[in-house]
Amino acid sequence: MRYIAPILIGLGYVLVMSLVREPHRRRLNAVMVAGAGAAYLSGGGLGGWEFAFTALATYVAYRGLDSWTFVGVGWLLHTAWDVVHDIKGSPLIPFFLDSSFGCALCDPVIALWCFLGGVSVWRADEFRKAVRSTS
């Protein structure tokens, strides 16, 4: 379950976000990236680097307001930050030691969907077209 649950959470996120209509879907996801970028601030496990990462994530999220690519990049940046925190032993959720590890598995699932243009998975025709255009 350590590996499966985070991936299922990422897929669940995609399913729920697919219900939001465009252009609100992309903008909401950009806001989510900004929030994820600030998620580690309260723990401060990496000192001043937490502020530097938050500034970078905020910039990428701002660019994500108009670009699914930037939203995807934001999720991948957060994945990298999750890995650093997992290695350092400074988890996202202090009482759940695997939280950064799980987040590092969940976030790339969301990023992949963003790189496909954040298309609604509920609209099979749009989703198939997005997947085909990447191959």
Rank of each mutant, 00 (worst) to 15 (best):
Phe53Asp: 02
Tyr59Phe: 12
Phe51Gln: 12
Arg63Thr: 07
Ala57Tyr: 03
Glu50Gln: 08
Gly44Glu: 02
Thr69Asp: 14
Tyr59Thr: 11
Leu41Pro: 03
Thr69Trp: 15
Gly45Lys: 00
Tyr62Gly: 04
Leu56Asn: 04
Trp68His: 09
Thr54Arg: 08
Trp49Phe: 11
Leu56Thr: 10
Ala55Gln: 12
Glu50Met: 01
Ala52His: 11
Thr58Pro: 03
Leu46Gln: 05
Gly45Asn: 03
Gly64Met: 14
Leu41Asp: 05
Ala52Thr: 13
Gly45Ser: 01
Ala61Ile: 02
Leu56Val: 12
Ala57Gly: 00
Ala52Lys: 12
Leu56Cys: 07
Gly44Pro: 01
Asp66His: 14
Leu56Trp: 06
Tyr40Val: 00
Gly47His: 05
Ala61Pro: 01
Tyr59Asp: 03
Leu46Gly: 03
Trp49Ala: 13
Leu41Glu: 06
Ala52Pro: 00
Val60Gln: 08
Leu56Gln: 06
Val60Thr: 08
Tyr62Asn: 05
Phe53His: 09
Glu50Ala: 06
Val71Ala: 11
Tyr62Glu: 01
Ser67His: 11
Gly45Phe: 02
Thr58Phe: 15
Val71Ser: 00
Asp66Leu: 13
Val60Lys: 05
Gly64Cys: 13
Phe51Ile: 12
Gly47Glu: 05
Ser67Lys: 14
Leu65Gly: 04
Ala61Ser: 13
Arg63Trp: 09
Leu65Trp: 11
Trp49Arg: 12
Phe70Arg: 15
Ala61Met: 04
Ala61Cys: 10
Leu65Ser: 05
Trp49Gly: 05
Trp68Ser: 07
Phe53Trp: 11
Gly64Lys: 15
Val60Ser: 02
Thr69Gly: 13
Leu46Lys: 04
Val60Ile: 13
Phe70Met: 15
Phe70Asp: 15
Val60Asp: 03
Gly72Ile: 14
Phe70Thr: 10
Val60Gly: 01
Thr54Pro: 00
Gly48Gln: 09
Leu41Ser: 09
Thr69Leu: 15
Phe51Tyr: 15
Gly72Trp: 12
Thr69Asn: 15
Thr69Ser: 15
Leu41Thr: 07
Leu46Arg: 06
Tyr40Pro: 00
Gly43Pro: 01
Gly43Trp: 07
Asp66Ser: 14
Gly48His: 07
Phe51Lys: 12
Thr58Cys: 13
Phe70His: 15
Asp66Gln: 14
Ala52Glu: 08
Gly48Ala: 10
Ser42Arg: 11
Glu50Asp: 12
Glu50Lys: 04
Phe51Met: 14
Ala57Leu: 05
Trp49Cys: 03
Gly45Glu: 03
Thr69Arg: 15
Trp68Val: 03
Phe53Met: 07
Trp49Gln: 11
Trp68Cys: 02
